[in-house]
Design a protein around this nucleic acid. Structure first.
Lengths: 334, 334
DNA sequence: TTGTACGCGTTATCAT
DNA sequence: ATGATAACGCGTACAA
């Protein structure tokens, strides 16, 4: 165990145990037709020499890596990390390993990552990245990479998708708010480059208000707790209140804290909704009313679907996760 | 772009452009000695056929994947996700890709993951996993896998490490607390299987109190916000106060919230310290006094060190990150 | 039950 | 400047 070994090959194992490499291969892969005592002998030499098969050579020979490519903008967001964990959970259970391709929110990087996914010979891919459109997806798909796309409605011969539905819940929430005498004006916090999910929510927000004939506001904000907190400290104080719809918990918490620190009451004067809720919605104070989707479950489901796809066994190529509204203390009960 | 292509090989490119595969290989790898117009011709066919080299075959031939194995218990903790992001950042910059091996806090799984790391042929590995001890690390290392170990003091021919130092800051904090008339009794929240980092902190906590002749408490708690919150709601109310030292932000927030919701004042009656602070220390209210280490920076540093190791260029095999005490509102200023 | 020989898609070393 | 040809480490028909 001390000095660095040269890689032991199947051939050396064969020679050392006096058989051909075919027999060793049979032992490794548990194919039958090998006499118990030769099998034992081979296994002993394998142990003695510390032989580990080369996944590379195996993959080249079988055209199967046991490797799933995961394309995400970054692992830095809690909800993405949660999904990653869900994926990794069932991947491990099924004997796959995950290779990470991060795109850092840039279309250019996303494209080069696509190239790498193709050259890397993954058995399949899970893509959760707004930088990639249908055309890009089909490109990687044309290289025989079965793919599950998250948060993008794309299906095809080798493509399935997992969708989020925040829209219905959001519309319902807005309508009921006004129906039950909600008196504050609503503000949607627009994040530049916030991605498809946020865009859809914003559109639903605008459409609903238009059709109700209610006034509304769109305000730009940075996708950062600190900046949002400072930007809104002044704004909120001036406005004296409002109902704010935010992309994620940290943004929502920024609004909440800015309000509280300005002496405004949440939810009496300022109400806040977090669209993509995580466990932190329950930790910050006041607790955040949020739309929640179990991202770990999204990850697990994606991976299961991908495995079915690999086995040509995926019948329902599209699956939709419905968000749940969890009312907590950042909004008034009605 | 419509139908699924069979994989185009270098040989087909060679034939289609009327040269030998050796020439194509030269074009791909930008080796010189190839006439401009043949080069152009080859490049045209590559584009036309949509040829992508097989990373597998390249790796087999060159004995270099551009693949770094990352071994972590899970991606579900914010500080681990942050580190992962740091790693991924410089990995991408340097043309590497990350393969994830998650161990789920089980020694058995950790061992099988080690096997997989070896068979997977990574160029190097970064390990941040308390399940793995020096012996395990040296095992993977004996298979010529250069390794950077995080939070474990191991160095060797092909092994370097990145260390955390929470201890000094913690001891200093405790000593100054009592020196400046701190009157509460301190409680260290012990998490079963909390890992090396927590153990070291606990030991430092105990030792410091022993040597000061001060009373102290060790209390078991679950590594979960919800359970800790409920468990401590009663405890805290009964005790009526105390100074609690917690592993992470979510645990610290659980104590804080349990205290606040029981009508106790933070930090007047209950003081809280979070050992492994993240950005959430600044978001929860009251904001959490915490020891902080920039985990993204840890990730970046680890990856840089690994690259140096790969180039036989790593002189200082051990690097230590010193935690910073950030005093916020969960402790009384002194 | 076991062995031979070929293929997987590259790189690299020779010749030419 | 270009082309054969041998590795790289393994799986697998086919033969024995």
């Amino acid at each position: 165990m001390k000095n660095i070994k040269e890689r032991v090959t199947i051939y050396q194992v064969a020679k050392a145990s006096g058989v051909s490499l075919a027999t060793v291969s049979r032992v490794i892969n548990n194919k039958g037709n090998v006499k118990p005592d030769t099998k034992a002998r081979v296994e002993e030499t394998i142990r003695r020499l510390g032989y580990k098969p080369s996944g590379l050579a195996q993959a080249l020979a079988t055209n199967k890596t046991t490797n799933i490519g995961v394309i995400i903008p970054s692992a830095n967001y809690v909800y993405i990390a949660n999904m990653l964990n869900g994926i990794s959970e069932v991947a491990k259970e099924k004997g796959f390993v995950l290779t990470l391709f991060t795109t850092s929110h840039s279309h250019e990087e996303a494209l080069t990552m696509i190239e790498r996914v193709i050259t890397t010979h993954v058995d399949g891919a899970i893509i959760f990245d707004d930088e990639l459109d249908a055309e890009d997806i089909m490109k990687i798909n044309s290289y025989s990479v079965p793919t599950i796309v998250v948060n993008n409605k794309i299906v095809g011969e080798q493509v399935g998708c997992v969708l989020f539905s925040y829209k219905d819940q959001l519309v319902k929430l807005i309508e009921e708010y006004y129906a039950n005498g909600g008196e504050k004006e609503m503000t949607f916090l627009h994040v530049h480059d916030g991605g498809r999910l946020l865009q859809h929510c914003e559109k639903a927000f605008v459409d609903t208000h238009e059709s109700l004939g209610r006034p509304y506001h769109i305000l730009n904000c940075d996708d950062s707790y600190t900046r949002t907190y400072h930007d809104f400290k002044d704004v909120i104080e001036k406005e004296g209140g409002g109902y704010f719809i935010c992309y994620r918990d940290s943004i929502a918490a920024a609004i909440e804290n800015a309000a509280t620190d300005s002496g405004l009451k949440v939810p009496e004067q300022v109400e806040v909704l977090s669209l993509v809720g995580t466990k932190y919605a329950n930790i910050v104070r006041p607790t955040l009313t949020s739309l929640q989707i179990d991202m770990a479950e999204v990850g697990r489901r994606s991976m299961y679907m991908l495995i079915d796809l690999l086995n040509h066994d995926l019948i329902e190529k599209s699956y939709r996760f419905e968000a749940t509204l969890v009312e907590r203390d950042s909004t008034k009960p009605r």
